[in-house]
Amino acid sequence: MKKLLLTSALVLWTGTSAMAATVGEPAPVFTATDIQGVEHTLTDFRGQTVILEWNNPECPYVVKHYDSGNMQSLQAEATETGAVWISINSAAEGKQGHMTAEIANEKMSDLGFNGSAYILDESGEIGQMYHAKTTPHMYVIDGEGTLVYAGAIDSDPSFKQDGIATATNYVKSAWEAVAAGEEVEVSSTQPYGCSVKY
């Protein structure tokens, strides 16, 4: 009975996946295979901070953070502290930024990608689950699976690189707060960037 209730709850939940991921609530759980062929389930990372980055390598705002090396160094910094960095590309087939796993591997290694995994979500399922709107759109999930931050990568909503150095990086602040066992001060901001190419 319990199991049945649970299953129907799960079914219901998947049915309403259009609902946005809400800060302070459990982050929607997804299972996906990355471009290296490794399967990941969000719950595999309980006990670790998980950072989700919505990526589209052809979006100027994403280019801003990769050309400047900002994203790669954030990825390195996060994973060194034991966090998991998952980049997700929800571009649909035929849309800008859509790639095969092979091309994505090539592209991300050219860029010096330092994250833990890169997932192609061409069905847009994970993107819609999280209501990902822009590239980049960032999410930070704590070790208990609670979404603690959703929004922009930093406080400079522009495609120009000059602002990066002086901007407040909300993602970094969030994972540092989680590591220190503190509450994330700025937990929700307006994401900026190109629209996700669903």
């Binding site: 052809e58 979006c59 100027p60 849309k95 800008q96 522009s158 495609f159 120009k160 190109c194 629209s195 190419k197």
Partner: peptide, 12 residues
């Protein structure tokens, strides 16, 4: 002046 102009793709 700066702006973002988009069709399906976006160009700053």
């Amino acid at each position: 002046a700066t702006w973002l102009v988009c069709e399906e793709i976006c160009i700053p």
